[in-house]
């Protein structure tokens, strides 16, 4: 049995072990390096940055725990940016299982900046019917959310007093682990010309680039890399920034394994011919 045959029959658990070490070592050793933010992430940052204080930003939590490692750091960094700039934050979501994650991040960052519930931010919660919710938000927010998450009438919350539809929302930030981002573009941007920034898992992000190229969204934050970029831009290094060295090491490992696999395949095929 030659080297290539041995590599071809290697126990897959050895590869799992290598991947685990490739992630654990950089995290425990606290390796870090500077990342140069991607243009689309910088665009998103600048769109938030140029909003005047008091502008309303609506966050939509369209993910759940399965996508938390990528999207939660993104959410925390963006909330940090919004509260630091004294923007008003509203939060809702189309994925009920993810809403508690959104609420945790909202409370945590609001507390950091001493923001008051109902005055500086509000949590609207979930309403079923994705497309219908998006369309009705363009007509009258109260048709969809007459109360907040706790059952408080929205008219009694100062932050919502002057918010009636998309005209009163400066930017909509959709954090996406599925196809809800497409729906936001189709129903909020195309019908009501709502300015949208999308943050998405790395699996979803490639499908959203056409919207960026067409100018249908004004910023795109893709995957852990995008989250790390945003953390760097707002200068709040978090889990995404700390995860980038591990990400790089695993990418190198995957490339090496793909090259080895291909070399082995051709070497064994040639050996078989002889």
């Amino acid at each position: 049995m030659n080297l290539w045959d041995r590599l071809a029959t290697i126990d897959r658990r050895i590869i799992y072990l290598l991947v685990a070490l490739g992630v654990i070592i950089p995290i425990v050793a606290k390796l870090s390096f500077r990342v140069t933010p991607l243009r689309e992430v910088r665009q998103a940052y600048e769109e938030i940055e140029k909003l005047p204080p008091g502008s309303v930003v609506l966050f939509s939590i369209d993910y759940d725990a399965a996508s938390m490692p990528e999207l939660q750091p993104m959410l925390v960094a963006m909330l940090d940016h919004c509260f630091r700039k004294n923007l008003k934050v509203l939060m809702m979501g189309h994925w009920p299982l993810g809403l508690p994650l959104g609420q945790i991040a909202l409370e945590q960052v609001a507390q950091k900046y001493h923001k008051k519930y109902g005055v500086d931010y509000a949590f609207l919660g979930f309403r079923p019917g994705v497309a219908a919710v998006m369309i009705n938000l363009g007509k009258d927010l109260r048709q969809v959310f007459n109360t907040d998450y706790r059952g408080t009438p929205v008219d009694s919350l100062p932050v919502l007093r002057n918010v009636h539809n998309y005209n009163d929302i400066a930017i909509l930030v959709g954090l996406e682990a599925g196809a809800t981002g497409d729906a936001w573009v189709q129903f909020a941007q195309a019908r009501y010309n709502q300015k949208i920034i999308l943050g998405a898992t790395a699996v979803v992000a490639p499908d959203l680039y056409p919207y960026l190229q067409a100018g249908q969204i004004v910023g795109l934050i893709g995957g852990l890399r995008g989250a790390a970029d945003y953390e760097q831009l707002v200068q709040v290094p978090g889990p995404a920034f700390l995860g980038m060295p591990a990400q790089t090491i695993i990418h190198i490992l995957v490339v090496v394994l793909i090259i080895l696999g291909n070399l082995g395949y051709f070497a064994r095929r040639q050996g078989g011919r002889r």
Partner: peptide, 19 residues
């Protein structure tokens, strides 16, 4: 991008365990 996403999930869990 999919590889990046899957590795990110692992990073998230490992970070949780160690942090």
């Amino acid at each position: 991008y999919t590889i990046m996403a899957r590795v990110s999930l692992l990073i998230g869990r490992i970070y949780f365990l160690f942090h």
